[in-house]
Every structure is written in structure tokens, then in C-alpha cells.
Design a binder for these strands. Sequence first.
DNA 1: CGGCATCCCGTAGGATACTG
DNA 2: CAGTATCCTACGGGATGCCG
Lengths: 126, 126
Amino acid sequence: MPDTDGSHVSHEGAFEIAHPHRELLDQVLDKWSLSVLGELCERPCRFNELRRAIPAVTQKSLTATLRRLERNGIVERVLLSSRPVAVEYRITPLGKTMRPPVEVLLEWAAAHMPEIERARRAFDLE
Amino acid sequence: MPDTDGSHVSHEGAFEIAHPHRELLDQVLDKWSLSVLGELCERPCRFNELRRAIPAVTQKSLTATLRRLERNGIVERVLLSSRPVAVEYRITPLGKTMRPPVEVLLEWAAAHMPEIERARRAFDLE
DNA sequence: CGGCATCCCGTAGGATACTG
DNA sequence: CAGTATCCTACGGGATGCCG
């Protein structure tokens, strides 16, 4: 990989991780976000619909996750009616752009899981 | 749609996230891992070399990160000499396979950062 | 229904000191 | 140099209860 014109910043194999990017990924790839995103990519969901779809999440964590995703412009909170309160969560266009990177990640995880489990067992033996 | 263990990735618009995969991503995309990986993709590094390259990391967290990555087969700990102790960390072939997915992710973050910051400001105003 | 408020605990992870 | 050992704190996040 000669990189003859040298216009390009990163040399050879390295990737830098800027702090704002790191922070963003933390917000958006945290414990429950991917599950929520997975659901909302499929269809808009009500709050309790999401709870049922992701049984392991508590109400508190789900609220926090949705607020965080909303704040970052990834999901949208739509008030359907105010009496009784009815809310729907939808993925935004920006949120949809996360799909390809996330899928690449999941494919990597799926592809290398066996190798990684072998590595773990080997490590844990010593 | 049974498939509770969800090893199956995509039908139409949704992505499922299986628990082993979620756990793996947590181990491998955590606070310091990407910075470490970035360094080690460039060249093998000594422990204190990594500390200097990533000034914000504490010794304890760096040790933990390296152990975790080693356990998952992503980096390799090479004992160069035992008196005085000299250790070198290297990325493994498995570790190198993380590069493309990580770069896709970083490119996503870089590309959409402005839009996300706008969303945050808008959200924080209310 | 869609939350917020409160309590409570475990753990990640920083600071500091010491060791082979 | 490359850690281990302690101590300590913040915070994620579970459980429970209440409310418009």
C-alpha cells in the first residue's frame, strides 16, 4: 500500500478515535440501543410494545435509552393523543443511516464468534 | 416469530441482536478498546508506550482493557524478557478483522456528527 | 398508557501506593 | 518497566411505588 500521493492523513493501519466520536458511539451503541433500533427499524412502536419486544429491559432503562436516542436525533417521539396519553416512537432518517454500520458490526460478531469463544476458553484455562 | 436466541440477522428491515453478540461488542467496543486497537494496528506497543499514546487512560483501566482484549483473542501479550520485565502487545489476525467494521462505524460517526450536534442542541433547548 | 420518583446495590473505573 | 493491591466514588440500572 504505497499511498504515493500522501494526501491521506492516517498512516498505514491506524485509526484514530476522536473524543466526540467515542462519546457518540457510547450513547448510541450502549446496552439497549441496538435492540430498540432493531425494533424501530421494523415498525414504529408504542412504549409498552417495546417493553414486550425486549423483555429484559426495565421501564427505567428503556425510558433512558429512548431519551438518549431522541436527543441524538436517532428516534422521534410522536404524541398520538394526550388523553389518555399515547406515544409512538419512530426511527428518523438519521437513525436509518445507522443500519449499515450496525449490520457490518453484527456480521463481524457472528462470523468470528466461534474463534472468539475458542480464544476465551484457551485463556480461561491458564 | 420464535427465534428467541436470535442468531438470525435480518428479515426485511429489522436486525436482531443476540446476547452473546451484544456481550462481545460490549467487551470489544468499550471505553478504551478502540484507542488501544488503533495504536496496536499501527505497531506493536509496550505497556507504557500505550499509556503515553492514550494519556487519559489510567494504568488500571489499561491493564483491564488489555486483559479483556487478550482473553477475546484480539491482542496478544508477548513477553520479551523477564529480567527486567519487558512486555509487548500486538494485534492478532483476529484483531485485524475488526478494522473494517470499526472504520465503517467511525466513518458513520464522522459523517453524521454535525447533524447529531444539531439534534442535541435542538433537544436541549426545550 | 407512559411515564417520573425513590431506594438500593453492584460494578466500572479513578487515585494512590507498593512490588518483582 | 509492568504491573498488583487498596480504597473510594459515581453511576448504570434493577425493584418498587405513584401519578396524570
